[in-house]
Design a protein around this nucleic acid. Structure first.
Lengths: 158, 158
DNA sequence: TTGGTTGCAAATATTTTGCAACCGG
DNA sequence: CCGGTTGCAAAATATTTGCAACCAA
């Protein structure tokens, strides 16, 4: 995975400062490990996996452990300091529908519903994509709460 | 995860027949396990995980093993008989960008690039979504080959 | 018959957790 | 000092693989 710088030193220092302030505000201790992990994310495009971050910071923190990286990334995400890309939970999910379609994902029960969206299909990718690469597949992913879970909600506590 | 029927018996039988023919055409043996696994996918909306399929078919095939389910689903996918939803590989991936944005994913190096797409953001979900649930987040996911990998290609074999 | 397929068990990969030592505020 | 944080090791979860027995064609 590409590991190119996405911002200059000044911008990075600025965001690290903001990050430090946010940690203090939220009662999170600002440790060496956390600073390095956050900086590794700032300095890398391509969305590194936990393992990637682990290797990136071992230059500066040779004794850091992989579970600290996992715990720290999860903590940052809970506090809205970073974002995580992951379909759902962790498992692969399968579908008998092999036609092009889009997905509506229920954030509560994790069900994935197929739907069609001709207006989206007619849309052209933005010009900015040209700088990134060649597009082959375009898909929309909507997230929300499915009918089933909405009903379960009103019929219980409220 | 919801496990509601998505088509009637007649439609299912029809698709199982097509599936059987496709298997024969492609030199795949039509075993009980494969038929049950395929039918389980047809009969379930919400995109079941391998484990879900395993439990669904154990009623009819009590001795089936989970690794057969994994192997069979992978085989079906390779042959274009079903589709798999999975971000990439398997790992969680992280990003310091917490603003709303979209993703361009390189199918070769698996890098995820952020981009912005105001035209998409202005689009309203299709009416058909109303029958599924309430939408909270809308995201586009484009897949293709990134500049870096395109360059690597031309500079090697060709 | 026979090569593709299955079931079992063990291995791998990813992520999580219990716990004592540690250190930031 | 003290409670949140870390590192270690072991556990938990998801998925893959080697291999002998099996069965669809």
């Amino acid at each position: 995975m590409a590991s190119v710088k996405q911002m200059n030193r000044k911008e990075i220092d600025e965001r690290v400062k903001t990050f430090t302030d946010l940690c203090r505000t939220q009662g999170l201790k600002v440790t060496h490990q956390r600073l390095e992990i956050y900086q590794a994310l700032l300095e890398t495009i391509g969305h590194p996996a936990a393992e990637d971050v682990y290797h990136l910071i071992r230059h500066k923190l040779p004794t850091v452990s992989i579970d600290t990286v996992y715990r720290t990334l999860a903590l940052f995400e809970e506090h809205g300091l970073i974002s995580r890309v992951q379909c759902l939970s962790d498992k692969g999910r399968f579908d008998s529908n092999v036609e092009p379609h889009h997905h509506f994902i229920c954030v509560e029960c994790k069900a994935i519903y197929d739907f069609y969206w001709p207006e989206f299909d007619r849309l052209l990718p933005p010009d900015s994509i040209g700088a990134l690469g060649e597009v082959r597949v375009e898909r929309a992913e909507l997230r929300g709460v499915c009918k089933h879970c909405l009903k379960a909600r009103t019929s219980s506590v409220q």
